[in-house]
Write a protein that binds this DNA or RNA. Structure first.
Length: 594
RNA sequence: GGAGCCGUGGUGUAGUCCGGUCAACAUGCCGGCCUGUCAAGCCGGAGAUCGCGGGUUCAAGUCCCGUCGGCUCCGCCA
């Protein structure tokens, strides 16, 4: 290489006029006028136009004619101003161009399978198979850079707050709860397996016992579950843990971190502290433990009226211990019967029995169920919903949890459909006071709502032995525009409490000892009170960047089937490798064996 | 584990419902002309047997069955 790049293409402006530069990058396009050839040269900073003139560039002009898109070239030349009529305001560098006097073709390129430009509409299949070309597109490089800046600023902020970045093992042991583990066979211990971490949870707690006091890690985590648009089998967390801290201390550090990231990376000024909503209230008002509060449409309880009405569906729901709640779909009174039937089918697919509805008109309610309510009951309903002419009231009756959940989904569905969600708002809020445990009817045992290491509210600790489902936890979730982006808790640091939880979860003593003995022992040697939180980093970045898929913010993501189209992973291995690992695959012919 | 959508020259689409101009349009690609373009332009050319396999039919891109791949959702993700 004789020409050495010394300038970034996209950063050249009028102030560089007169400079002798060498630019290098990829050829975006070529406009061949015969004796005059324009090249658009692109590097990660942007595009600059290079001009070759047959008269001036006689010695290598035939080389220029060979250049095609995506060739890698280096060009030496002088930055010159463009004449006023040839200025291109679409380019940041459009007021200048490079008048070439030297060229080196560093590498030719095949015609790429898709255009190297933003907003392409190509099969994602192709993009993933040629990921290096996909990433070469400016918007994708920008996302990689965006992610880098988030990580950099997170590190700066946490360092500033006294956190130490510490790595924990990738090869660890399988634990009984949680997601399916990715397993790694041990060559040296036949028949034994490592598991890739689902999160560094126990290690960071042990670091607290060790006296680290403030820890963080940009941690890769693995969960062998089915994928979604916002879920990959390997993903990254910003994982944190602090000793001697209350829930409020941790929430406040996290708020500082989020504010810092938005400030530094996007120049946005977030208001902190964030709103705090108890779980119960979130469920009752929004029907979700991760409510999108960028819009209202809150749930309204009419159980009392329903019980007193003559409408049997509502009446019996309440008599059976359930509820009747509804939402006001503002200005949706125009919906046709067909559209309302479709909504009914939708809520039924979510598990509701049916959907009650009332359209508010100038003359009163238009609804098949008006006759079951007295005029004063209808007035109360109108008042409770602040119902105006043209509104559509929708009701769900049933068991409390189910009714709330369905209404919560319906609320979001309608808001999207009606375009009620402000797109430029960044709404963060905390959900706290989650229940500690849920009852798993199938398994006939309790399950952790967060995870088994989450501490109960101190004052409700005594309830644990009496009425475990009543106990609330010191967990907290951070919700961003209706998406859970972080979650954490104050942890249990006393052995007796941890044992009590394990037993409620139905873990036998031997298993507690085998799987968690090391944690229990650690708690016997002066474990400080501690707690922490982890961000789903990919999801956070996706939302901040306004992307619909988590794959866009991961350099080399997997497909919905968990494959890497670029490398072909996962792939077969040799019999020799398997033998060495003491593994013998049992392949089932999915159809025949059943 | 289940459901839905998609799969036609390099790329994006049309044609598929109502089988019979077996293939159109745009862009890209190749060649020629062209000294001010930047979605350059003009002229000419090459390029798909319609994801794969099987079936129905005189005849299938078009209908049926299976299969592979991608996407989305439910289950799952403490």
């Amino acid at each position: 290489m004789t020409l050495k790049k010394n300038t970034n293409c996209g950063l050249l402006t009028k102030v560089n006029v007169g400079e002798k530069v060498v630019v290098a990058g990829w050829v975006q396009g070529r406009r061949d006028h015969g004796g005059l050839i324009f090249l658009d040269l692109r590097d990660r900073t942007g595009i600059v136009q290079v001009v070759f003139d047959q008269e001036k560039n006689k010695s290598f002009f035939n080389q220029v004619e060979k250049i095609r898109p995506e060739y890698v070239v280096a060009v030496g030349g002088k930055v010159v101003p463009r004449s006023p009529e040839t200025v291109n305001l679409k380019l940041k560098t459009g007021e200048i161009e490079i008048s070439a006097d030297a060229l080196e073709i560093l590498n030719p390129s095949l015609t790429p399978p898709f255009y190297i430009e933003n907003n392409i509409d190509t099969d994602e299949n192709l993009r993933l198979r040629y990921r290096y070309l996909d990433l070469r597109r400016p918007e994708m490089l920008e996302l990689l850079h965006f992610r880098h800046r988030i990580l950099l600023e997170a590190r700066k902020y946490l360092d500033g707050e006294g956190f130490w970045e510490i790595e924990t093992p990738m090869l660890t042991r399988s634990t009984p709860e949680g997601a399916r583990d990715y397993l790694v066979p041990s060559r040296i211990s036949p028949g034994s397996f490592f598991a890739l971490p689902q999160s560094p949870q126990l290690f960071k707690q042990l670091l607290m016992v060790a006296g680290v006091e403030k820890y963080f890690q940009i941690a890769r985590c693995f969960r062998d579950e089915d994928l979604r648009a916002d879920r990959q089998p390997e993903f990254t967390q910003i994982d944190m843990e602090m000793s001697f801290s209350s829930r409020e201390d941790i929430m406040s550090v996290v708020e500082g971190l989020v504010k810092h990231l938005f400030q530094q990376v996007q120049g946005k000024d977030l208001k902190i502290p964030f709103e705090v909503l108890p779980y119960r209230e979130a469920m009752e008002r929004f029907g979700s433990d991760r409510p999108d509060t960028r819009f209202a449409m809150e749930l309204v309880d009419i159980s009392e009226i329903a019980a007193a009405s003559q409408f049997r569906v509502f009446k019996t729901a309440v008599q059976d211990g359930g509820i009747v709640k509804g939402i006001n779909a503002k200005n949706c009174g125009r919906y046709s019967r067909k559209e309302i039937d479709d909504l009914t089918a939708l809520v039924q697919s979510w598990g509701a029995q049916g959907l009650g509805w009332m359209i508010v008109t100038g003359e009163g309610f238009k609804t098949p169920i008006a006759k079951f309510f007295s005029p004063s009951q209808l007035d109360t309903i109108r008042e409770k919903f602040d119902a105006r002419e043209g509104d559509l009231l929708l009701f769900i009756a049933g068991k409390r949890e189910k009714a709330l959940d369905v209404l919560g989904q319906l609320r979001v569905h309608l808001a999207r459909r009606e375009g009620l969600i402000p797109q430029n708002e960044d709404k963060f809020l905390w959900i706290v006071d989650f229940p500690l445990l849920a009852y798993d009817a199938e398994e006939k045992r309790y399950d952790s709502v967060h995870h088994p290491f989450t501490a109960p509210l101190e004052e409700e600790l005594p309830l644990l032995a009496v009425d475990p489902l009543k106990v609330r936890s010191q967990a907290y979730d951070l919700v961003y525009n209706g998406v859970e982006v972080a979650g954490g808790s104050i942890r249990i640091h006393r052995k007796e409490v941890q044992e009590q939880i394990f037993k409620l979860l139905g873990l036998p003593d031997e298993e507690i000892e085998e799987k968690f003995g090391f944690l229990m022992r650690a708690f016997e040697y002066g474990a400080p009170p501690h707690g922490g939180l982890a961000f789903g980093l990919d999801r956070l970045i996706m939302l901040m960047a306004g992307r619909k898929s988590i794959r866009d913010v991961i350099a080399f993501p997997k497909t919905a089937a968990g494959n890497c189209l670029l490398t072909g992973a996962p792939g077969p291995v040799s019999a020799g490798q398997l033998a060495e690992l003491h593994i013998s695959p049992v392949l089932r012919n999915n159809k025949k064996d059943v």
